[in-house]
Protein backbone atom coordinates (compact mmCIF):
# COMPACT_ATOMS: atom_id res chain seq x y z
CA UNK A 1 0.00 0.00 0.00
CA UNK A 2 0.97 3.56 -0.51
CA UNK A 3 1.64 4.30 3.14
CA UNK A 4 4.33 1.62 3.04
CA UNK A 5 5.88 3.18 -0.02
CA UNK A 6 4.67 0.34 -2.19
CA UNK A 7 3.02 1.31 -5.44
CA UNK A 8 0.14 -0.76 -6.73
CA UNK A 9 0.52 -2.98 -9.73
CA UNK A 10 -2.31 -2.60 -12.21
CA UNK A 11 -2.39 -5.98 -13.85
CA UNK A 12 -3.66 -6.38 -17.38
CA UNK A 13 -6.40 -8.96 -17.23
CA UNK A 14 -8.02 -11.04 -19.91
CA UNK A 15 -11.19 -13.01 -19.26
CA UNK A 16 -11.83 -16.03 -21.45
CA UNK A 17 -14.83 -18.32 -21.61
CA UNK A 18 -14.87 -21.96 -22.51
CA UNK A 19 -17.62 -24.51 -21.91
CA UNK A 20 -19.80 -23.05 -19.19
CA UNK A 21 -22.78 -20.86 -18.57
CA UNK A 22 -20.81 -17.60 -18.30
CA UNK A 23 -22.34 -17.12 -14.88
CA UNK A 24 -18.92 -16.66 -13.31
CA UNK A 25 -18.02 -13.97 -15.80
CA UNK A 26 -21.27 -12.28 -15.02
CA UNK A 27 -20.23 -12.32 -11.36
CA UNK A 28 -17.20 -10.22 -12.27
CA UNK A 29 -19.52 -7.45 -13.38
CA UNK A 30 -21.65 -8.00 -10.27
CA UNK A 31 -21.57 -6.18 -6.90
CA UNK A 32 -22.35 -2.76 -8.35
CA UNK A 33 -21.06 -0.74 -5.42
CA UNK A 34 -17.49 -1.88 -6.02
CA UNK A 35 -17.44 -2.44 -9.78
CA UNK A 36 -15.89 0.98 -10.56
CA UNK A 37 -13.12 0.42 -8.01
CA UNK A 38 -12.67 -3.14 -9.27
CA UNK A 39 -12.23 -1.98 -12.84
CA UNK A 40 -9.95 0.82 -11.66
CA UNK A 41 -7.68 -1.67 -9.94
CA UNK A 42 -7.17 -3.85 -13.00
CA UNK A 43 -6.85 -3.13 -16.67
CA UNK A 44 -9.26 -5.30 -18.60
CA UNK A 45 -7.83 -5.96 -22.03
CA UNK A 46 -10.07 -8.77 -23.14
CA UNK A 47 -13.48 -9.48 -21.66
CA UNK A 48 -16.33 -10.28 -24.00
CA UNK A 49 -19.03 -9.72 -21.37
CA UNK A 50 -18.29 -6.07 -20.79
CA UNK A 51 -16.17 -4.84 -23.67
CA UNK A 52 -15.59 -5.45 -27.33
CA UNK A 53 -11.83 -4.96 -27.31
CA UNK A 54 -9.59 -7.93 -27.70
CA UNK A 55 -5.89 -8.20 -27.03
CA UNK A 56 -3.06 -10.64 -26.47
CA UNK A 57 -1.35 -8.29 -24.09
CA UNK A 58 -2.36 -9.52 -20.65
CA UNK A 59 -0.56 -10.72 -17.52
CA UNK A 60 -3.46 -12.40 -15.81
CA UNK A 61 -5.83 -14.74 -17.60
CA UNK A 62 -9.10 -15.65 -15.93
CA UNK A 63 -10.42 -18.87 -17.42
CA UNK A 64 -14.08 -19.68 -17.15
CA UNK A 65 -15.63 -22.98 -18.16
CA UNK A 66 -14.49 -26.53 -18.72
CA UNK A 67 -12.58 -27.85 -21.72
CA UNK A 68 -14.64 -30.04 -24.04
CA UNK A 69 -13.39 -29.52 -27.60
CA UNK A 70 -10.14 -29.69 -29.54
CA UNK A 71 -10.20 -26.02 -30.48
CA UNK A 72 -10.64 -25.17 -26.80
CA UNK A 73 -7.51 -27.10 -25.94
CA UNK A 74 -5.54 -25.20 -28.61
CA UNK A 75 -6.95 -21.86 -27.49
CA UNK A 76 -6.21 -22.55 -23.84
CA UNK A 77 -2.61 -23.54 -24.57
CA UNK A 78 -2.21 -20.31 -26.52
CA UNK A 79 -3.54 -18.27 -23.57
CA UNK A 80 -1.17 -20.09 -21.23
CA UNK A 81 1.76 -18.89 -23.36
CA UNK A 82 0.76 -15.24 -22.93
CA UNK A 83 -0.37 -15.26 -19.32
CA UNK A 84 2.05 -14.85 -16.42
CA UNK A 85 -0.70 -15.93 -14.07
CA UNK A 86 -3.49 -18.25 -15.11
CA UNK A 87 -6.54 -18.42 -12.87
CA UNK A 88 -9.26 -21.07 -13.09
CA UNK A 89 -12.48 -19.27 -12.33
CA UNK A 90 -15.46 -21.25 -11.10
CA UNK A 91 -16.25 -24.93 -10.61
CA UNK A 92 -16.26 -25.74 -14.35
CA UNK A 93 -12.73 -24.43 -14.83
CA UNK A 94 -11.49 -25.91 -11.53
CA UNK A 95 -13.06 -29.39 -11.69
CA UNK A 96 -15.01 -29.65 -14.95
CA UNK A 97 -18.21 -28.76 -13.13
CA UNK A 98 -21.62 -29.96 -14.17
CA UNK A 99 -20.21 -30.58 -17.65
CA UNK A 100 -18.22 -33.42 -16.22
CA UNK A 101 -21.35 -35.47 -15.54
CA UNK A 102 -21.34 -36.58 -19.15
CA UNK A 103 -18.04 -38.40 -18.63
CA UNK A 104 -20.01 -41.10 -16.85
CA UNK A 105 -21.93 -41.92 -20.01
CA UNK A 106 -21.24 -43.01 -23.58
CA UNK A 107 -20.20 -39.86 -25.43
CA UNK A 108 -22.20 -40.61 -28.60
CA UNK A 109 -25.34 -41.36 -26.64
CA UNK A 110 -24.95 -38.08 -24.77
CA UNK A 111 -24.44 -36.25 -28.03
CA UNK A 112 -27.53 -37.74 -29.53
CA UNK A 113 -29.62 -37.07 -26.41
CA UNK A 114 -28.78 -33.37 -26.60
CA UNK A 115 -28.37 -32.65 -30.28
CA UNK A 116 -30.47 -35.39 -31.84
CA UNK A 117 -29.65 -35.98 -35.49
CA UNK A 118 -27.14 -33.11 -35.68
CA UNK A 119 -24.33 -34.18 -33.34
CA UNK A 120 -21.62 -31.65 -32.37
CA UNK A 121 -17.93 -32.23 -31.86
CA UNK A 122 -17.24 -33.06 -28.23
CA UNK A 123 -14.54 -34.59 -26.01
CA UNK A 124 -14.69 -35.93 -22.48
CA UNK A 125 -14.82 -32.90 -20.15
CA UNK A 126 -11.54 -31.77 -18.62
CA UNK A 127 -10.73 -29.24 -15.93
CA UNK A 128 -8.33 -26.46 -16.94
CA UNK A 129 -5.55 -27.97 -14.83
CA UNK A 130 -5.80 -31.20 -16.85
CA UNK A 131 -4.78 -29.28 -19.98
CA UNK A 132 -2.38 -26.55 -18.80
CA UNK A 133 -0.77 -25.59 -15.51
CA UNK A 134 -2.96 -23.44 -13.27
CA UNK A 135 -1.55 -20.87 -10.84
CA UNK A 136 -4.64 -20.15 -8.83
CA UNK A 137 -8.07 -21.72 -8.46
CA UNK A 138 -11.23 -19.86 -7.43
CA UNK A 139 -13.92 -22.52 -7.22
CA UNK A 140 -17.63 -21.87 -6.82
CA UNK A 141 -20.81 -22.06 -8.84
CA UNK A 142 -20.82 -19.22 -9.45
CA UNK A 143 -17.66 -17.71 -7.96
CA UNK A 144 -18.15 -15.26 -5.10
CA UNK A 145 -17.28 -11.78 -6.33
CA UNK A 146 -16.00 -10.81 -2.89
CA UNK A 147 -13.47 -13.65 -3.09
CA UNK A 148 -12.42 -12.57 -6.58
CA UNK A 149 -11.94 -9.04 -5.25
CA UNK A 150 -9.75 -10.28 -2.42
CA UNK A 151 -7.62 -12.24 -4.83
CA UNK A 152 -7.27 -9.22 -7.10
CA UNK A 153 -6.24 -7.13 -4.08
CA UNK A 154 -3.77 -9.84 -3.22
CA UNK A 155 -2.27 -9.59 -6.70
CA UNK A 156 -2.10 -5.82 -6.54
CA UNK A 157 -0.94 -5.17 -3.00
CA UNK A 158 0.20 -8.55 -1.67
CA UNK A 159 -2.48 -8.27 1.01
CA UNK A 160 -3.15 -11.69 2.48
CA UNK A 161 -5.57 -14.04 0.86
CA UNK A 162 -6.15 -17.23 2.76
CA UNK A 163 -7.94 -19.95 0.82
CA UNK A 164 -10.28 -21.27 3.54
CA UNK A 165 -9.16 -24.64 4.88
CA UNK A 166 -12.37 -25.22 6.80
CA UNK A 167 -15.51 -26.94 5.54
CA UNK A 168 -18.89 -25.36 4.80
CA UNK A 169 -20.32 -26.47 8.19
CA UNK A 170 -18.32 -23.77 9.93
CA UNK A 171 -19.89 -20.90 8.01
CA UNK A 172 -23.27 -22.58 8.10
CA UNK A 173 -23.12 -22.58 11.88
CA UNK A 174 -22.01 -18.97 11.86
CA UNK A 175 -25.22 -17.96 10.15
CA UNK A 176 -27.40 -19.90 12.58
CA UNK A 177 -28.68 -22.33 9.99
CA UNK A 178 -30.39 -25.45 11.26
CA UNK A 179 -28.36 -28.44 10.07
CA UNK A 180 -30.12 -29.82 6.99
CA UNK A 181 -29.22 -33.35 8.07
CA UNK A 182 -31.61 -32.68 10.98
CA UNK A 183 -34.26 -31.97 8.40
CA UNK A 184 -33.56 -35.24 6.61
CA UNK A 185 -31.48 -33.91 3.73
CA UNK A 186 -28.12 -34.89 2.35
CA UNK A 187 -25.40 -32.24 2.52
CA UNK A 188 -21.70 -32.18 1.60
CA UNK A 189 -21.10 -29.40 4.15
CA UNK A 190 -18.82 -31.46 6.43
CA UNK A 191 -16.32 -32.21 3.66
CA UNK A 192 -16.77 -29.39 1.13
CA UNK A 193 -14.58 -26.32 1.15
CA UNK A 194 -16.02 -23.27 2.87
CA UNK A 195 -15.61 -19.64 1.95
CA UNK A 196 -18.97 -19.44 0.19
CA UNK A 197 -20.81 -18.37 3.41
CA UNK A 198 -23.07 -21.41 3.08
CA UNK A 199 -25.99 -19.97 1.13
CA UNK A 200 -27.41 -23.34 0.02
CA UNK A 201 -28.09 -24.92 3.42
CA UNK A 202 -29.47 -21.55 4.57
CA UNK A 203 -31.84 -21.71 1.62
CA UNK A 204 -32.94 -25.16 2.69
CA UNK A 205 -31.01 -27.39 0.32
CA UNK A 206 -27.88 -29.24 1.31
CA UNK A 207 -24.42 -28.40 -0.01
CA UNK A 208 -23.48 -29.80 -3.44
CA UNK A 209 -19.77 -29.18 -3.02
CA UNK A 210 -19.25 -26.60 -5.75
CA UNK A 211 -15.98 -25.52 -4.13
CA UNK A 212 -14.56 -29.03 -4.02
CA UNK A 213 -13.18 -30.75 -0.93
CA UNK A 214 -12.05 -28.90 2.22
CA UNK A 215 -8.46 -29.31 3.39
CA UNK A 216 -8.01 -32.81 4.82
CA UNK A 217 -11.65 -33.96 4.52
CA UNK A 218 -12.74 -37.08 6.39
CA UNK A 219 -14.51 -38.72 3.47
CA UNK A 220 -14.62 -42.17 5.03
CA UNK A 221 -16.55 -40.96 8.05
CA UNK A 222 -18.77 -38.80 5.90
CA UNK A 223 -19.81 -41.77 3.77
CA UNK A 224 -20.56 -43.71 6.94
CA UNK A 225 -22.72 -40.89 8.30
CA UNK A 226 -24.65 -40.57 5.05
CA UNK A 227 -25.21 -44.33 4.96
CA UNK A 228 -26.30 -44.44 8.61
CA UNK A 229 -28.82 -41.74 7.90
CA UNK A 230 -30.39 -43.83 5.22
CA UNK A 231 -29.06 -42.21 2.08
CA UNK A 232 -28.59 -44.54 -0.86
CA UNK A 233 -25.17 -45.18 -2.30
CA UNK A 234 -26.27 -43.88 -5.68
CA UNK A 235 -27.65 -40.71 -4.18
CA UNK A 236 -24.38 -40.02 -2.34
CA UNK A 237 -22.29 -40.77 -5.41
CA UNK A 238 -24.43 -38.49 -7.53
CA UNK A 239 -23.97 -35.67 -5.02
CA UNK A 240 -20.20 -36.15 -4.86
CA UNK A 241 -19.82 -36.20 -8.63
CA UNK A 242 -22.13 -33.28 -9.36
CA UNK A 243 -19.43 -30.63 -9.70
CA UNK A 244 -16.56 -33.00 -10.30
CA UNK A 245 -14.60 -31.67 -7.32
CA UNK A 246 -14.49 -34.96 -5.47
CA UNK A 247 -13.43 -37.04 -8.43
CA UNK A 248 -9.83 -37.56 -7.27
CA UNK A 249 -10.97 -38.88 -3.94
CA UNK A 250 -11.06 -42.63 -3.27
Amino acid sequence: MKYLGIEPKRPKVGVFDFTGCEGCELQLANKEETVPAFLQAIEVVDFREISSTSSDDYEVALIEGAITRDDEIRRLKEIRKHAKLLVALGSCACFGGVNRLKNGYDLDAVNQEVYGTEPKETLPTQAVKEVVSVDLEIPGCPVDKAEVERIVQHLIWDVPYQFPAYPVCFECKQRYTTCVFELGQLCLGPIARGGCHAPCPAGGSGCWGCRGPAADPNLEEFLQIAKDRGFKKREIKERLSFYGGFEDMP
Binding site: L4, I6, D158
Partner: peptide, 15 residues
Protein backbone atom coordinates in the same frame (compact mmCIF):
# COMPACT_ATOMS: atom_id res chain seq x y z
CA UNK B 1 4.76 -14.97 5.71
CA UNK B 2 2.54 -12.22 4.38
CA UNK B 3 3.19 -9.57 7.03
CA UNK B 4 6.92 -10.18 7.32
CA UNK B 5 7.07 -10.29 3.52
CA UNK B 6 5.54 -6.85 3.19
CA UNK B 7 7.76 -5.46 5.95
CA UNK B 8 10.76 -6.63 3.98
CA UNK B 9 9.45 -4.69 0.97
CA UNK B 10 8.66 -1.48 2.78
CA UNK B 11 11.00 1.45 3.23
CA UNK B 12 12.28 3.78 5.89
CA UNK B 13 9.63 6.28 7.02
CA UNK B 14 6.63 3.96 6.75
CA UNK B 15 4.27 4.01 9.72
Amino acid sequence: GVVTGILHKTRRGAV
